[in-house]
Design a protein around this nucleic acid. Structure first.
Lengths: 202, 202
DNA sequence: CGATTTTTGTACTGTTCCGCATAATATAAT
DNA sequence: ATTATATTATGCGGAACAGTACAAAAATCG
């Protein structure tokens, strides 16, 4: 599509998308602090100087993987909460897809953002800002859907969409932590169901 | 009390309790992986070989700080949920005290367990077990209180104490994460209030 | 082809780190 | 006092680490 004025110089041998995915997977598994640039560059199919040239230092690379994960997740969240479907169905989809991701892969890794950025948030203002803003963005998407649900009568007149969005988000945060802590699928599904029932009881 | 058969050898110069507190504070601020034994031993007022002699290697030391934090927190949780006080008051106390701890100190550090053990839980089975079992223990204390509340009529007959305990725990987990992510007190208090209102509406 | 540009790959530097070896010190038992 | 025991204190060794310098390689442009 938006292709080539034919750039000069040796063409890059790496795929930026796959490189970021590889880096994300290392960070996801190991955490930021314990991930070495050797592991990272290997998983990115790049050598270390290329990593620095393309993405900057370790923290800049980490921030890019966080932001990409957030953007992808926000898109999926928005799609799952499509207002043409019932609220209960939407929430169930959100939680089911989250559980699928959190338990997916060889190890149960939980949520990439919550599972790895939370610990770094105290020491790095940049990480803290990305994490806080991301959580806020997720909450907002949910709150918007709940406001709609109140207007449409899916939620009762006394329901407080903003407060319910905080709780619905809390369920996600708990799923994120518990999956990484080794809780099994039935526990996570029970938590999701409890949240849905409680929210939809309003 | 249970003192002295008068031990031989040079007496220890460190206070084990204060040493563990110092180590916990370093881990809490910095996370496990990014905490060096130099930082740790300095905060423990010990030199490095003494740390190894008294607590073992870095992971063993970390596990000890986690377990102590869990035991302290479990005690406080149990006390706050004293069944002679109304459920709503008990939950309010739990969340208020949690917020106090999570925002206390110079930096907002969130919950020590969730904020630092979650990221390590994938790579270390020992950390994962402590984290999972601790979360389970917290949940159980809450569940017991909710079962009592149902029997006493504080909760309605159709209330599901186990499900509500999952939600009440999720509120705590969310407070833990959000505090470390930089969310301010009003947000945390709104989350706590939303959880209390929702749970006590059953 | 030769010049230019951009990326790749190797190798290096200085630092930090964990864990321990060894010696000095302080107490109790003999 | 001397011996035994337990802790402190200094300092080392080998490994891992983050980040970079430099030259070889691969493409385009003149």
């Amino acid at each position: 599509m938006t292709d080539e004025p034919k750039k000069r110089g040796r063409p890059p041998a790496y795929d930026p998308d796959r490189a970021l995915s590889g880096a994300r997977d290392v960070f996801w598994q190991t955490g930021y602090a314990a991930s070495s640039l050797d592991e990272l560059s290997a998983a990115m199919a790049m050598n270390r100087p290329s990593v620095y040239g393309a993405f900057g230092d370790k923290e800049a690379l980490y921030l890019k993987t966080l932001e990409r994960y957030r953007d992808d997740s926000l898109g999926a969240l928005h799609a799952a909460l499509d207002p043409t479907r019932p609220l209960r169905e939407g929430l169930a989809t959100v939680y089911a897809k989250s559980i699928e991701i959190y338990l997916g892969g060889p190890a149960a890794r939980g949520c990439f953002l919550i599972g790895t950025a939370t610990v770094e948030a105290v020491g790095s203002a940049a990480v803290r800002d990305v994490l806080r803003d991301s959580l806020r963005a997720f909450e907002r998407v949910i709150a918007d859907r709940l406001k709609l649900a109140k207007r449409s009568g899916e939620l009762g007149a006394r329901a407080d969409p903003a407060a319910l969005a905080l709780v619905a988000s809390a369920i996600m945060h708990s799923l994120a932590v518990r999956a990484r802590a080794g809780d099994k699928r039935p526990t996570l599904e029970a938590l999701a169901q409890a949240g849905i029932d409680l929210i939809c009881s309003q």
